[in-house]
Write a protein that binds this DNA or RNA. Sequence first.
DNA 1: AATCTATCCAACCGCTTTTAA
DNA 2: GTTAAAAGCGGTTGGATAGAT
Length: 316
Amino acid sequence: MAKRSCCHKKKLRRGLWSPEEDEKLMSHIAKYGHGCWSSVPKLSGLERCGKSCRLRWINYLRPDLKRGTFSQEEEDLIIHLHSMLGNKWSQIAAQLPGRTDNEVKNFWNSYIKKRLRERGIDPATHQPLPEPAAAATTSSCRVVFGDADLIPTTTPLQAPLAEPMLDGVKLPLDLPIAGNAVPSSLSRSGYLQAGCFNLDVLQQHCGSMPAPVVPSASSSSTLTSMPDAEQCTANIAGAGYLPWLELGQNTLGEASHVDSYAGALDELRWSEYFDGAFQDAACQQGALQGQCVYGGGGKDDVVAVQFDVHGLSNWR
DNA sequence: AATCTATCCAACCGCTTTTAA
DNA sequence: GTTAAAAGCGGTTGGATAGAT
């Protein structure tokens, strides 16, 4: 038997909020702040549970909400972040100022999912949907986005690519590494651009790579205190450099932002990186669970390196 | 005009994590 | 260290609305 919610237990009001209730909640929070949500209904005279009040505030009444339709840039960013984070809506929403996790989730389920499917992309895996005809074609390359609109021109790849990083243990970026280096058959940027994650670009735009994964207290509201993360996001999207996204000319620019991060890039030495801590981390992580598949080297040659944004920030 | 269907989105549910006593 | 309450989160539901028949 399903447990009854707190609203049922206390016979509190449920369903849509009336303007009067909104008014009560807003004026209460304006005066006192929300403090403890469980006490808000009592103090404000609302016959709602604290949880409901919290949700209403976060998703609807908060003054910093943007609302309205999502822009193309926002849509691209959501797709990009979802390919890395999976259904971590709060983390995705944290990168979209003025958007709530609920809003992003709804947008994903009602619009983006459909669009990706129309374009032959499985929204769950970001892989091309299985197509009998397509499967018989030559490419062994596995891409995150099969859509020509979304993938910039890249050198055709020689090797199969890793699955996208969906298994989200804190922004997983699983870089398959054959031996101590990027597979010889594949340039680093070529490999990364084509399917996984372009660290060149990330480094270029983010430098120290402020965490895109922020401890989200209330979705996007945290962004105001995360200028670096916000700027990083803006730089990635604004410069049209989401590795597999073309955002159009109107989004290009912001060269000064790029410059400010460029220095950090030089400090990154991939050989050091691969020989060092990340390789250790890869060893610790153990099995790949089929995330990265390489031709030639065989399974034993493949080392997955998982790092989160904190790891990236340590590259400097 | 009436009915049916699809879509969108606000809100709920229940589980997990965090915090405080 | 334990426990209960609060907060956070993601999945799901249900009502409103638009569009199709």
